[in-house]
Computed example of a mutant assay.
Amino acid sequence: MGCLGNILWFIFGGCLSGLSWAFAGLLWCITIVGIPVGMQCFKFAALSFFPFGKEVTYGGGAGSFLLNIIWLIVSGFWLAVESAVIGAILCATIIGIPFGLQQFKLAKLALMPFGSTVY
């Protein structure tokens, strides 16, 4: 079921979310200092393209907290808003609820990506 969900996800909106994460990663990689942040964006772009069957755990320490604050101010807020709005639209229909829940998972990840791991 996860494979079918990922295929449908990619066709009906996952491509947009993944491209948003990849674009944020490209913008971060323009600067030398932002390359580690950009690489993290590319990891989460892969998750955003195919999220079904994957879990995200949150953790980290003081360094992750500081990076999350900078991330939230610069680009995390807009990625979270995008995912939350798409998730709310998808949850308006019964068929779209599983896809909307995946968007909400990505919205939470967009708020605090550093210190989190994907399984």
Rank of each mutant, 00 (worst) to 15 (best):
I69D: 04
G2W: 10
F104P: 04
W71H: 09
G100I: 02
A80K: 01
A22R: 13
G18M: 03
G34I: 12
T93G: 13
L109D: 06
G87S: 08
L109H: 11
V33C: 09
G5A: 13
E55V: 13
M112W: 14
E82N: 00
A46P: 00
G60F: 10
F42S: 09
F49R: 01
M39S: 10
S20Q: 09
A45E: 02
G115D: 12
F114G: 00
F23K: 14
W9V: 03
G87R: 01
K54H: 15
E55N: 12
F42Y: 15
F44V: 02
G61L: 08
T57E: 13
S116Y: 09
G14F: 03
T31Q: 08
V85T: 12
M39Y: 12
S17H: 12
G14Y: 04
T57S: 14
A24D: 03
C41K: 04
L19Y: 04
G96R: 09
W78K: 11
V37I: 15
I89A: 11
V37L: 07
G60Q: 05
S116P: 07
L111I: 15
G87N: 03
G53E: 12
M39N: 10
S83I: 00
L19F: 11
G53Y: 04
G59H: 07
A110T: 08
C29K: 06
L16C: 02
L26I: 14
L47D: 02
L27P: 00
C15T: 06
A45Q: 07
G96I: 12
V37Y: 05
G96A: 10
Q40K: 15
V81P: 01
G5V: 07
M39W: 15
Y58D: 05
C91W: 02
L27Q: 12
C41P: 02
W9T: 02
G5K: 11
I89P: 01
L26P: 00
Y119P: 00
A84T: 13
K108G: 05
L8M: 13
G60N: 08
S116I: 04
F52Y: 14
I30A: 11
P51K: 05
L8K: 00
C91A: 11
L27C: 12
W78L: 13
I94P: 01
T93M: 09
P98R: 05
L79D: 06
S116G: 03
A62W: 15
C91F: 01
F42N: 08
N68Q: 08
V33S: 03
C91R: 07
E82L: 14
L109A: 05
G34S: 12
S116N: 06
C3L: 14
S116T: 14
P113N: 07
C3N: 11
L111M: 14
Q102H: 06
F49T: 00
G61V: 10
A22T: 09
F114I: 10
K54I: 06
Q103K: 11
E55P: 00
P98Y: 07
V56D: 02
I11R: 12
P113T: 10
A110Q: 03
L47I: 07
S20M: 13
I30L: 15
I11C: 11
P113E: 09
Y119C: 05
L109T: 05
L26D: 08
F99Q: 04
I97Y: 11
K108E: 13
I70P: 00
